[in-house]
């Protein structure tokens, strides 16, 4: 609780908490709060301006933009959280493993990290999806691969920093098995910075997913992904600016919220910065 108060007092912290909470609530309660179904087509009311019936207007098939954006939040959050969960778990496992393994194993793992990170994330994701084909499952899995080295590197560096510290050695002297040392003593002490990184990576994943969907390589229409919405809005920009504007704004709100949360979290977790508050 005090951590939350502390968070909200950071620059941008209040906004970050508000944006992220709003996004999560909307995603969870989508079927309850969306005024229409996300795919309810109404050919009679195509590309309408915002009105009392349709607060944010309708798209080229007469679907309610607000409802689609609300369901789109589900897709964006669902994909980004799955990607982060997969890449964080795999990255931490590989990073900690590399730090505690013999030098040869460490070199191989670090080498793989280097190869993956030498490509810009969006290009690599694009290439992988182009090869393995679009679709929800593929997008999640392939984007996860792109993010594994992020977590792997931090986990490895943090583990190297503490692997010879007295409290780890004390466990070894007590006769603790390696898995116990990793699970109970290494992981809890390296996970803080990794959570911060995760927060900062969520908006990147959201943009990559949107980008892929925009290019038709991500989530397949008619599923309401923000990227798809943006693509539609772009196509009909000359007839109605609302779809593009509102889907772009949602994307901005989400990325900004998570990015600021990550930064605030980093400052909160760093005891040196905490004192200066």
């Amino acid at each position: 609780m005090t951590a939350l108060v502390d968070l909200s007092r950071r620059p941008g912290g209040t906004f970050a908490l508000f944006a992220v909470t709003l996004l999560c609530l909307v995603a969870i309660a989508a079927p309850l709060i969306a005024p229409y179904g996300p795919n309810a087509i109404a050919p009679a009311s195509r590309l309408m301006d915002p009105s009392l019936q349709h607060w944010l207007g309708t798209d080229q098939l007469g679907r309610d933009i607000l409802s689609r954006l609300i369901f789109g939040a589900r897709v964006a959050l669902g994909i980004s959280l799955s990607v982060i969960a997969i890449s964080l778990t795999a990255g931490v496992a590989l990073g900690v493993g590399a730090a505690l393994s013999p030098r040869a194993v460490d070199l191989v793992i670090v080498g793989i990290f280097d190869i993956v990170t030498s490509f810009p994330s969006i290009i690599l994701a694009l290439a992988l999806v182009a090869v393995f084909g679009p679709g929800l499952g593929n997008v999640v899995l392939l984007v996860s691969i792109v993010f594994i080295p992020h977590f792997g590197r931090v986990a490895r560096a943090q583990t190297i920093a503490i692997r010879n510290s007295p409290f780890i050695e004390a466990e070894k002297v007590l006769g603790a098995e390696t898995w116990r040392v990793i699970l109970h003593h290494v992981t809890p002490n390296i996970i803080g910075p990794i959570f911060v990184l995760a927060c900062m990576d969520i908006p990147v994943v959201i943009t990559i997913e949107a980008g892929l969907s925009f290019l038709g390589l991500g989530v397949r229409p008619p599923l309401a992904s923000w990227g798809n919405l943006l693509n539609d809005g772009y196509t009909y920009l000359d007839q109605s600016p609302w779809l593009a504007t509102f889907s772009g704004l949602s994307l901005m709100l989400a990325t900004l919220g998570f990015a600021l949360l990550g930064e605030a979290l980093r400052d909160t977790l760093d005891p040196k910065l905490r004192k200066n508050l």
Binding site: S165, P166, F167, E169, A170, E171, V173, L174, G175, A176, E177, R180, H184, H185, P188, N189
Partner: peptide, 30 residues
């Protein structure tokens, strides 16, 4: 295990995210 070590810096030899209770129970669990 019959040989135990007292570290030069005893405070640093205690896992920072564990309570004294779990630190003292650690040898039994191991």
């Amino acid at each position: 295990r019959r040989i135990q070590l007292l570290f030069q810096d005893p405070a640093a030899s205690l896992s920072p995210r564990m309570t004294v209770r779990s630190l003292l129970a650690e040898p039994l669990k191991i």
